[in-house]
Protein backbone atom coordinates (compact mmCIF):
# COMPACT_ATOMS: atom_id res chain seq x y z
CA UNK A 1 0.00 0.00 0.00
CA UNK A 2 1.42 3.37 -1.02
CA UNK A 3 1.55 5.59 2.02
CA UNK A 4 2.44 9.16 2.78
CA UNK A 5 5.65 7.79 4.24
CA UNK A 6 6.66 6.34 0.82
CA UNK A 7 5.91 9.66 -0.80
CA UNK A 8 7.98 11.37 1.87
CA UNK A 9 10.90 9.02 1.15
CA UNK A 10 10.70 9.80 -2.56
CA UNK A 11 10.72 13.55 -1.91
CA UNK A 12 13.58 13.08 0.51
CA UNK A 13 15.70 11.22 -2.09
CA UNK A 14 15.17 14.11 -4.52
CA UNK A 15 16.32 16.67 -1.97
CA UNK A 16 19.29 14.43 -1.09
CA UNK A 17 20.75 14.89 -4.57
CA UNK A 18 24.10 16.68 -4.44
CA UNK A 19 23.33 20.06 -6.04
CA UNK A 20 26.96 20.72 -6.84
CA UNK A 21 27.21 17.61 -9.03
CA UNK A 22 23.63 17.72 -10.32
CA UNK A 23 24.23 20.79 -12.52
CA UNK A 24 24.63 19.31 -16.08
CA UNK A 25 27.96 20.99 -16.91
CA UNK A 26 29.50 19.96 -13.59
CA UNK A 27 28.06 16.48 -13.96
CA UNK A 28 29.82 16.18 -17.34
CA UNK A 29 33.11 17.35 -15.83
CA UNK A 30 32.77 14.95 -12.89
CA UNK A 31 31.88 12.02 -15.18
CA UNK A 32 34.92 12.73 -17.36
CA UNK A 33 37.28 12.92 -14.39
CA UNK A 34 35.68 9.81 -12.85
CA UNK A 35 36.75 7.66 -15.81
CA UNK A 36 40.16 9.31 -16.35
CA UNK A 37 43.18 9.61 -14.14
CA UNK A 38 43.58 13.35 -14.85
CA UNK A 39 43.18 15.80 -17.72
CA UNK A 40 44.06 19.39 -18.54
CA UNK A 41 41.59 22.21 -19.21
CA UNK A 42 41.87 21.83 -22.99
CA UNK A 43 41.01 18.13 -22.93
CA UNK A 44 38.01 18.75 -20.66
CA UNK A 45 36.89 21.61 -22.89
CA UNK A 46 37.03 19.41 -26.00
CA UNK A 47 35.18 16.56 -24.31
CA UNK A 48 32.45 18.66 -22.68
CA UNK A 49 32.01 21.35 -25.37
CA UNK A 50 31.93 24.02 -22.66
CA UNK A 51 33.39 27.49 -23.20
CA UNK A 52 36.62 28.43 -21.42
CA UNK A 53 34.69 30.72 -19.05
CA UNK A 54 32.06 28.13 -18.17
CA UNK A 55 34.61 25.38 -17.72
CA UNK A 56 36.81 27.52 -15.49
CA UNK A 57 33.86 28.63 -13.36
CA UNK A 58 32.49 25.11 -12.90
CA UNK A 59 35.92 23.65 -12.13
CA UNK A 60 36.37 26.38 -9.49
CA UNK A 61 33.05 25.42 -7.87
CA UNK A 62 34.04 21.76 -7.84
CA UNK A 63 37.45 22.68 -6.44
CA UNK A 64 35.85 24.78 -3.68
CA UNK A 65 33.67 21.79 -2.79
CA UNK A 66 36.82 19.67 -2.54
CA UNK A 67 35.67 17.37 -5.37
CA UNK A 68 38.50 18.12 -7.78
CA UNK A 69 42.08 19.18 -7.36
CA UNK A 70 43.79 21.55 -9.77
CA UNK A 71 47.53 21.05 -9.84
CA UNK A 72 50.40 22.51 -11.79
CA UNK A 73 52.81 19.89 -13.00
CA UNK A 74 55.63 19.79 -15.49
CA UNK A 75 55.13 17.88 -18.73
CA UNK A 76 58.15 17.91 -21.06
CA UNK A 77 59.65 20.68 -18.87
CA UNK A 78 56.61 22.90 -19.48
CA UNK A 79 54.14 23.89 -16.75
CA UNK A 80 50.79 22.22 -17.21
CA UNK A 81 47.57 22.54 -15.21
CA UNK A 82 46.04 19.14 -14.56
CA UNK A 83 42.70 18.43 -12.93
CA UNK A 84 41.84 15.22 -11.14
CA UNK A 85 39.07 13.91 -8.96
CA UNK A 86 39.76 13.79 -5.22
CA UNK A 87 38.73 10.86 -3.01
CA UNK A 88 35.94 13.06 -1.67
CA UNK A 89 34.84 13.81 -5.24
CA UNK A 90 34.87 10.14 -6.20
CA UNK A 91 32.81 9.22 -3.13
CA UNK A 92 30.38 12.08 -3.83
CA UNK A 93 29.96 10.94 -7.45
CA UNK A 94 29.31 7.36 -6.34
CA UNK A 95 26.75 8.62 -3.85
CA UNK A 96 25.18 10.82 -6.52
CA UNK A 97 24.80 7.79 -8.81
CA UNK A 98 23.21 5.77 -5.99
CA UNK A 99 20.80 8.58 -5.11
CA UNK A 100 19.74 9.11 -8.72
CA UNK A 101 19.29 5.38 -9.29
CA UNK A 102 17.17 5.07 -6.16
CA UNK A 103 15.15 8.13 -7.12
CA UNK A 104 14.29 6.71 -10.55
CA UNK A 105 13.58 3.27 -9.10
CA UNK A 106 11.18 4.81 -6.58
CA UNK A 107 9.28 6.75 -9.21
CA UNK A 108 5.95 5.30 -10.34
CA UNK A 109 6.21 3.46 -13.66
CA UNK A 110 4.77 5.11 -16.78
CA UNK A 111 1.35 3.59 -17.59
Amino acid sequence: MSTEKDYGNRISSITDVDKIIHEPARLMIMAQLYVLDSADFLFLKQQTDLTWGNLSSHVSKLENAGYVQVEKEFVEKKPHTMIHLTEKGRAAFNEYQRTMKKMFEDMPKDK
Binding site: V35, L36, D37, S38, A39, D40, F41, L42, F43, L44, K45, Q46, V75, H80, M82
Partner: peptide, 9 residues
Amino acid sequence: RLGYVKFAP
Protein backbone atom coordinates in the same frame (compact mmCIF):
# COMPACT_ATOMS: atom_id res chain seq x y z
CA ARG B 1 44.78 20.44 -30.17
CA LEU B 2 43.05 17.92 -27.96
CA GLY B 3 44.78 18.54 -24.66
CA TYR B 4 46.77 16.41 -22.28
CA VAL B 5 45.18 13.44 -20.53
CA LYS B 6 46.25 10.56 -18.36
CA PHE B 7 43.96 7.59 -18.81
CA ALA B 8 42.74 5.41 -15.95
CA PRO B 9 44.95 2.47 -14.86
